[in-house]
Amino acid sequence: MSYEIKLDIFEGPLDLLLYLIRKNEIDIYNIPIALITAQYLAYLEMMRSLNLDLAGEYLVLASTLIHIKSKLLLPPDESEGEEEEGEDPRAELVQQLLEYQIFKEAALRLENRPLLERDVFTRGAPGEAPSAAEEEGEAMMEVGVFELVAAFRRIVAGFDRPEELEIDAEKMSLADRINEIMEMLSEKQQMTFVELIGDRTDRRRIIYTFLAILELMKLRMIRAYQSGPFGAIRLFLAVEG
């Protein structure tokens, strides 16, 4: 005797649960927990016997279901006070299912839109629009902290004339500088390190600019590229936006 097993692919425990609810034609607001729990566990058993990788999330939901089932069996807890009519232990799960269902529908709507390169096409478009770095024409390589430090040294060496290091009463914070840099970059798409510092060469500004760039790189909000050793370092927003 041979079985033919048709296994629906589920996107996760919530998906499986929704499937069971639909299959049994159950009202989502009034889930017969005992029935659904039994079917859910049977599915897990089947998946296990097929050596399918059973993600931990499936087990978490299984324990949630069993927990709800046990709560429904027990008499209402007296200590919880009588003013509350004892909330339905299923309520939270139902809420989660409803929310997930909406996003499943949203995903379906997205997929049914006229998609670029599937349903609609632009003029002789390649698969992907080239990124700003690729448009530069020459190959750019991503630079790390060390190249930046080297560039920083070169700039400071170039500027470091004592008469320009006047005391600047202007208050500057790192956060302000970060915001300024992000603003400038979203406007111009790309800037060199030198451009970002500008022609005002007080030490504090240079240092804050440098720190802001390091911070932004750490956060992966900007990327630094260089066209070759000692080439100008160009900074780009990490992604278009």
């Binding site: 949203a106 995903a107 709507r109 997929e111 998609l115």
Partner: peptide, 17 residues
């Protein structure tokens, strides 16, 4: 055309909204 998986679409929908 490169298609997105169901998991990717659902994740994208959640991010979009």
């Amino acid at each position: 055309p490169a298609m997105l998986s169901q998991a990717a679409l659902e994740t994208l929908a959640v991010v979009a909204y």
